[in-house]
Design a protein around this nucleic acid. Structure first.
Length: 619
RNA sequence: GCGCCCGUAGCUCAGGGGAUAGAGCGUCAGCCUCCGGAGCUGAAAGCCGCUGGUUCAAGUCCAGCCGGGCGCACCA
């Protein structure tokens, strides 16, 4: 039985269940690549415990000790303390003494309440590296979600202005979460809901009609979305001077709803400009969508559902004639006067609201695409809206309602405060991407004084590095954190950044290439020669990767992966700085280290891929 | 007023009940006859917002406070 179905439908409102997941990974599991090794250690403890206490141990977990000099793996004896009625330290001492060396275990020692195991490095490194390399680029993937199709909706742009930094955070999350869900085995459908109708869209239309004199993106040499955005801003300026413009937009919206051909033509024409512009930004940032929903199509949806719900008594009517939904007391509380809180789902005149169409769209998504669950990547300011939406879907009796998830993320603040596109206080997405690519390009040229790189190669590298830097900056903190956008920090390529991680990959590729040129390979590796502190730390990072991915999926939190990729790159740099690979003391050691760094490259690449960030073999 | 999020080093942030709380940036001091310096090493820098509680064990869980942010419905 699916864990999802065990969740009390009302439980979806609890904070805890925000981390409800399409599947439930066992984080302390026996996962690859060291599952068999952990099993072996548990079996050794089991045998020792039976011998010493005539008791089968339960609840023990094999973890890493805080310092790998203490041992390669450790087990805390706390769970045994109660049943054996001895101190954990006493138990650890007894069990460690009873565990002798074998073909895997080199030694077991007690340290306080812990049993620390030192393994034979040939087995430890050999088995882990073999598992990683044999996974063929999909290390860390699982098939757990194979039967559960998920839709991830992200971006939700308006067609009256270009995309800004807030959209990029949204997109970075949407892209990464889609990839991570896919890595967990889920079939994933990526969708976008485009807000292409309403009075705010009419504002840019009206301003263009009145003031543009027939100008087009082509005539102005502007990207279409920027061109339309210019008229949206112009509207704001003009309506300050002439408040009567507002009646003009209201009239235009009425004409649009009546299907007035001239208004519809203008609307289509301007939207086309915006979509052409958006398509370019999608391409630059690596966004892609399987399904496009337009509010001009969906805004009528939901009314029939509400009519049906009204008949079933799910909805009621208030004194003003609104159709309303009474929110259950459990999570929502009550009004001061004791009445249940309510949400209006239909106006008295039968026109729909934001939530009306969202109800319809939610149902449409599931029925059209046979979904198990639905993820909405939308800012935290809409948390209440989605709680209401999911409550209504549950009340309507949809079994999948508890599988709807609002992936809520914090705001992006500029040094001057919150972004406000109406006031032009935004960081434009295209400007930011272009700016980062320029910086990357400068850096690339600085490293190519002899100008051996083609313009095309430079451009390609700059794109991967520039976009990678932005995405990493936006993904490295957990989604619930708001981000204080620091221009200086965001353009850095040093330290905790995407380029740092990409650089480690390129360095490894350089070594592998050079090794190949000298006829060295991983063949003939003697993994028994590995085991210095830097090698151990690096191996630990590689081993932990699948668990980090699983946690990231479970929490819808790409920062898990981002942080781990950085730690892996750092561990590699520390190793690299202290130990030679190609020029190692012996060919058998060189071969073993080559295998180790090949496995490292695989983890770095896969981790960055899950974040939607590309790697370069040379940078 | 109610709900949610955030509060950890000067700044920006990681920390999935367990061993000595970490990183980046910044500051200071070092490392290029040696596989790529977008790198590495070291130092200084912490009442983990406060107070209680649960637990053998709390930055982590619970309660109550104090700051800051976002919402609270007929806008989207």
């Amino acid at each position: 039985m699916s864990s999802d179905l065990e969740v009390d439908p009302a439980g979806i409102f609890c904070h805890r269940v925000r981390f409800q997941t399409p599947f439930k990974p066992d984080i302390k599991d026996m996962s690859m690549p060291v599952g068999p090794i952990k099993q072996h250690l548990l079996a050794a403890i089991d045998a020792a415990c039976r011998a010493a206490y005539d008791h089968a141990p339960e609840g023990l977990a094999i973890d890493f000790p805080p310092d790998l000099q203490l041992g390669h793996f450790a087990a805390g004896c706390f769970p045994l303390s109660k049943t054996l009625r001895r101190s954990p330290a006493d138990i650890a001492r007894t069990l460690a003494a009873a565990i002798g060396p074998d073909d895997l275990i080199a030694g077991a020692a007690a340290a306080g309440p812990y049993i620390n195991f030192t393994l034979r490095p040939g087995r430890l490194f050999g088995e882990a590296i073999a598992a990683i390399l044999s996974a063929g680029g999909s290390y860390g993937d699982s098939a757990a979600g194979a039967e559960r199709r998920v839709m991830v909706e992200y971006l939700s742009p308006n067609t009256n202005k270009p995309l800004h930094l807030g959209h990029l955070r949204n997109a970075a999350l949407g892209i990464a979460v889609s990839r991570m869900l896919a890595a967990a085995g889920h079939p994933v459908v990526k969708s976008i809901l485009i807000n292409d109708r309403g009075v705010h869209i009419c504002k840019s239309m009206l301003a263009w009609e009145r003031f543009a004199g027939g100008a087009t993106p082509h005539s102005e040499g502007l990207k279409g979305d920027h061109f339309v955005g210019r008229w949206y801003v112009r509207y704001a300026i003009e309506s300050e001077k002439d408040p009567s413009l507002e009646q003009g937009t209201q009239a235009m919206l009425r004409r649009w709803e009546e299907g007035d051909p001239a208004t519809i033509d203008l609307w289509k024409r301007m939207n086309r400009w915006v979509y052409d512009g958006f398509a370019e930004t999608y391409r630059r940032f690596g966004m892609d969508f399987d399904v496009f929903y337009y509010e001009s199509d969906t805004y009528r949806l939901g009314k029939d559902v509400i009519a049906g719900g009204l008949a079933q008594g799910v909805f009621g009517t208030d004194e003003r004639g609104n159709t309303v939904f009474h929110l259950p007391e459990k999570p929502f509380g009550r009004e001061k006067d004791g009445a249940l809180k309510k949400v209006t789902v239909l106006r008295p005149d039968g026109t729909s609201l934001y939530i009306t169409q969202d109800i319809g769209t939610a149902i449409l998504k599931v029925t059209e695409h046979d979904l198990h669950s639905s993820v909405y990547v939308v800012g935290s300011e809409q948390e209440h809206h989605f709680k209401c939406l999911f409550a209504i879907l549950a009340a309507l009796g949809y079994a999948w309602a508890p599988n709807c998830h609002h992936l809520s993320y914090g705001m992006v603040y500029l040094p001057e405060g919150k972004m406000k596109s109406r006031e032009g206080k935004v960081v434009d997405a295209d400007d930011l991407i272009a700016g980062m690519q320029e910086l990357a390009e400068e850096e690339i040229r600085r490293r190519d004084p002899e100008k051996r790189l083609s313009a095309e190669e430079i451009r390609h590298r700059a794109e991967v590095i520039g976009v990678g830097a932005i995405k990493y900056y936006l993904l490295r903190v957990r989604p619930t954190q708001s981000i204080n956008f620091d221009p200086a920090e965001s353009i850095s390529f040093d330290g905790f950044t995407g380029p740092y991680c990409q650089y480690a990959y390129a360095r490894i590729f350089g070594i592998l290439e050079k090794a190949g040129g000298r006829g060295l390979s991983a063949g003939g590796a003697d993994f028994g020669l590995l085991g210095n502190p830097e090698e151990l730390l690096l191996l630990k990072m590689l081993i932990q990767f699948p668990a980090e991915v699983a946690s990231g999926v479970a929490e819808y939190n790409p920062s898990r992966v981002a942080v781990h990729v950085f730690n892996t790159a750092k561990a590699f740099n520390q190793f690299y700085n202290k130990h030679a690979v190609i020029q190692a003391e012996s060919p058998a050691l060189a071969a073993a280290r080559l295998a180790l760094i090949r496995a490292t490259a695989a983890v770095l690449k896969r981790g960055l891929e899950l974040l939607g960030i590309g790697v370069l073999e040379n940078m």
